[in-house]
């Protein structure tokens, strides 16, 4: 089985966010970047488990500039066989999907996995767009994935419950929590990653349908009103009269 896993490069979850250029660009200075958790913990690790059990290969693909290579190497250290970096700024979901589709189209992947969304731009779009560009079925929010005899069985969250679906390969799946447990790369993996193939692919020209014109930090809460533990009914009163929440 030939598996492709899309990975994106995002600020670590604890990052304090700031912006530059009159609040039109994310300030990456001093920020620790990691593989998007949904791509890494769930999509990539499940892909590796399937490969380990059934044979085949796992390729990771990333759209981004050369400075994202440490993130790609981490994916190789966790166990991917090889990597592809398409040399383009990933600043529009549709453009990213077009880049990946252009590369993947004639490579015969049986399974294409992405995370359900990135923790940076929270788009939740690339997987579905990729499926449309490649004319493939798509399942989002997948929490379980198995493959037998060229048929994938996918459990995923739907409105009001979960659905178990079956689909002949190939297809595109967006992974949610539950699909696998996080793996920490070991020393051997880290050493091996240095020499695994990382193919650089030039960008194609793509459409840019959206752009960000301004960033603002979310307004935080400034003061918490404390209620004495002995009078919780006071809280209910405030929630009713002041916050109008109940």
């Amino acid at each position: 089985m030939k598996i492709l896993v899309c990975i994106s490069n995002v600020p670590d979850t604890t990052t304090k966010i700031s912006f530059t250029n009159n609040n039109t660009a994310f300030n990456g200075a001093g920020v620790q970047f990691v593989i998007n958790p949904f791509d890494e913990w769930y999509a990539l690790v499940r892909a590796l488990e399937l490969k380990e059990a059934q044979g085949g290969s796992v390729t990771i693909i990333h759209v981004g500039a050369a400075d994202s290579e440490p993130t790609i190497r981490k994916g190789l250290a966790i166990g991917a066989d090889d990597a592809v970096r398409i040399d383009a700024e990933p600043n529009d979901a549709f453009a990213v999907a077009e880049q990946i589709a252009a590369y993947a189209k004639d490579k015969g992947f049986d399974l294409i996995l992405a995370g359900k969304e990135t923790i940076s731009y929270n788009g939740s779009m690339v997987g579905a767009m990729l499926a449309e560009l490649m004319n493939l079925p798509f399942v989002s929010m997948a929490t379980k994935l198995d493959v037998a005899n060229n048929v994938a069985t996918i459990e995923h969250d739907i409105d009001g419950g979960t659905e178990v679906a079956e689909c002949a390969l190939p297809l595109v799946i967006a992974a949610n929590k539950g699909m696998a447990e996080a793996r920490i790369p070991n020393m051997r993996g880290i050493m091996a990653a240095r020499t695994k193939p990382l193919l650089q692919v030039p960008a194609i020209s793509t459409d840019k349908l959206t752009s960000i014109s301004l960033f603002e930090l979310s307004k935080g809460r400034t003061d918490c009103k404390f209620i004495d533990a002995s009078t919780p009914e006071k809280l209910i009163e405030l929630l009713h009269t002041e916050a109008k929440a109940i």
Binding site: P11, T13, T15, I17, F19, I119, S120, Y121, N122, T210, S211, I212, S213, L214, F215, E216, L217, S218
Partner: peptide
């Protein structure tokens, strides 16, 4: 919302 609610972005 972007960055998991840490910021808001205006998209054109």
């Amino acid at each position: 919302n972007v960055f998991s609610g840490k910021a808001v972005a205006t998209y054109s």
